[in-house]
Amino acid sequence: MSKLVADQADGLRRLLAQTRTRVLAFASMGRGLGVTTMVMNLSAALAYQGREVLLLDEHGTDAGTASAAWAVEPVGTLADVANRRLTLHGAAARAPCGVQVLPAVPRTPAGSPDPRTLWEGDVILIDAVLDGEGQLSALAQAADELVLVMQPHAASITATYAGIKRLHYAHALRQLRFLVNGVAEPEAAQQVAHNLAQAGSRYLAVSLQPAGWVRAEPHMADAGRLRRTVVEAYPASPAAADCRRIADEMGQWPWRPGASLAPQAAPVTQGTNTAAAC
């Protein structure tokens, strides 16, 4: 009976959200933890499920970004779409797997549009950039969920917990998710997830929900050389299977009351000529 009530409550929240578009922001507390690769793979997995996916990249189009990794060239940016200089289809580039990629350089809160008003697809994933103080952009704050990507070693665990504290005090976050990347043994990842969730609850009163784990992939470099994600190039690999599992579970995450991590800027009026995971 409790599950039925929970499902009914979640369905009501979806109706009240007045949109079918889910916005998920991904970030990491440090370089080299695989957040961009993870966002690309999850985007590809979602696209292969038949979802319409938009990847907003706050890193721009330089080396190491989703645009560079997929070898696609967006014509414009999210700002161009918000200011009606371009339609979203005209500004974004489409990756081989069907994901639309659009640079979204962080802007001031007053200048950050709600991407739901510009695009009516299924899922928007944000490859988020933290500022010099470790805080989220206004665009990432407006997401429905924040997912921190980490690795199962001491330095990453310590940095992630410290980053969670900063985010909690900067944005009054009460809930976020974390994903463990580069896992050798799932049992170890489960222990990391348990310990981190316990620490967040005990010392910060923050609900830290595990988003899953992805096993280390020895052919990651080969996929990159082919300008593909592991999900696209090696779908039978354990890492690809992990990404597909997470992408499937993401669709089951409850819609939380409030619908965003922080108060959103005033919505941008949608034009008449507007416009698809690893």
Results as ranks from 00 to 15, higher is better:
residue 195 N to M: 12
residue 247 A to Y: 02
residue 256 R to F: 06
residue 103 P to A: 15
residue 229 T to R: 09
residue 181 N to L: 01
residue 272 T to P: 11
residue 216 A to Q: 00
residue 269 T to F: 01
residue 13 R to T: 00
residue 164 I to M: 13
residue 159 A to I: 05
residue 18 Q to W: 06
residue 278 C to K: 08
residue 26 F to V: 09
residue 43 S to C: 15
residue 42 L to T: 13
residue 31 R to P: 00
residue 143 A to C: 11
residue 112 S to I: 14
residue 208 L to N: 03
residue 239 A to P: 02
residue 112 S to M: 15
residue 86 L to Y: 05
residue 88 L to T: 04
residue 95 A to S: 08
residue 113 P to Y: 03
residue 271 G to D: 09
residue 41 N to G: 04
residue 214 V to H: 00
residue 239 A to T: 00
residue 174 R to D: 13
residue 232 E to H: 04
residue 82 A to H: 13
residue 196 L to C: 12
residue 115 P to G: 14
residue 64 G to M: 04
residue 233 A to N: 07
residue 110 A to Y: 10
residue 90 G to R: 00
residue 253 W to R: 08
residue 239 A to F: 02
residue 24 L to R: 08
residue 128 A to H: 00
residue 231 V to Y: 01
residue 200 G to R: 01
residue 215 R to M: 08
residue 102 L to Q: 14
residue 277 A to R: 12
residue 164 I to L: 15
residue 209 Q to P: 02
residue 67 S to C: 07
residue 145 E to M: 12
residue 242 D to L: 01
residue 141 Q to K: 13
residue 273 N to K: 11
residue 53 V to M: 07
residue 213 W to Y: 11
residue 28 S to Y: 00
residue 29 M to Q: 04
residue 83 N to S: 12
residue 64 G to A: 03
residue 62 D to K: 11
residue 186 P to F: 08
residue 18 Q to L: 05
residue 220 M to L: 09
residue 172 A to D: 14
residue 67 S to Q: 06
residue 66 A to M: 14
residue 275 A to S: 13
residue 236 A to V: 01
residue 127 D to V: 02
residue 204 L to Q: 07
residue 271 G to S: 09
residue 230 V to F: 03
residue 18 Q to H: 12
residue 126 I to G: 06
residue 277 A to C: 13
residue 80 D to R: 14
residue 164 I to H: 12
residue 234 Y to N: 01
residue 136 L to C: 15
residue 225 R to W: 03
residue 243 C to D: 07
residue 188 A to C: 10
residue 144 D to L: 06
residue 270 Q to R: 11
residue 185 E to W: 05
residue 273 N to L: 15
residue 230 V to M: 08
residue 53 V to H: 10
residue 266 A to I: 06
residue 53 V to K: 07
residue 171 H to C: 08
residue 31 R to V: 03
residue 186 P to I: 09
residue 56 L to D: 10
residue 159 A to W: 03
residue 114 D to W: 10
residue 29 M to Y: 01
residue 98 G to N: 09
